[in-house]
């Protein structure tokens, strides 16, 4: 496997791990606490792009589905995915893809990143609220009151922080990518030398 690809595999796993950590970190603002999972979902899309963004969010969902306690409140399991908050979890996957897709198309410009996070968050609610309505058998107004309105301010804060973090960390990632790229020929030469030694 090429080093760049292996690096993206590791980074996607890291973002999935961070999403899980985000479910454990609460920032208390008012009656509803902010959970940082959405923040890392948006960040995965912005930093890794659409392909690896969807891979990391999908991996997070998958790890949760096989029973690891990575969802909010230390929950996990397939049953939790089909519970009342399952729509938000599926929304994370699409959100990471969409945020990455828009961010790639506008080449990481500030205005475009704002658009990417807004559309990403709308996708989460677009899947989460109807799912909550269906599973909990609520009316639309109740589902919106329980599953969207209280979180809007917190999500706006998270969206801004996601953009700030993405812009702060991207130069570091690019620098590391250059280091890995310079390392690749050295490693491939080394492997070829080993193969030749084996043949001899």
């Amino acid at each position: 496997m090429p080093v760049e690809k292996l690096r993206m595999v590791v980074l996607a796993s890291l973002m999935a791990g961070l999403m899980a950590v985000g479910a454990y970190i609460h920032v208390p603002i008012g009656p509803v606490p902010i959970v940082l999972t959405n923040l890392f979902v948006l960040l995965a899309g912005l930093l890794l792009g659409s392909r690896w963004g969807i891979a990391s969010a999908g991996l997070y969902l998958f790890v949760g589905a096989i029973g690891m306690p990575v969802f909010y409140g230390g929950k996990g399991g397939l049953a939790h995915i089909f519970g009342p908050t399952g729509g938000y979890l599926f929304g994370f996957v699409l959100c990471a893809w969409m945020a990455g897709f828009i961010s790639e198309r506008i080449r990481h410009r500030f205005g475009g990143e704002i658009l990417a996070v807004i559309i990403g968050l709308l996708i989460i609610y677009g899947l989460g609220v109807p799912w909550l309505k269906m599973v909990a058998k609520m009316s639309w107004s109740k589902a919106l009151m329980v599953g969207m309105i209280p979180f809007l301010i917190g999500d706006a804060v998270k969206a801004i922080v996601a953009i700030v973090l993405a812009r702060a960390v991207r130069p570091m990632l690019n620098r590391q990518m250059q280091t890995v790229s310079t390392l690749t020929p050295t490693l491939s030469h080394q492997r070829e030398r080993e193969k030749n030694n084996d043949r001899n």
């Binding site: 595999v9 590791v10 996607a12 796993s13 890291l14 999935a16 791990g17 961070l18 899980a20 950590v21 454990y24 970190i25 891979a55 991996l59 997070y60 998958f62 790890v63 096989i66 690891m68 990575v70």
Partner: peptide, 19 residues
Amino acid sequence: IGLMVSLALRFFSCTLDQA
């Protein structure tokens, strides 16, 4: 997929300590 799952779990526990 197995590698990614085990890495994600490893990063999860390490990052919790770092947090």
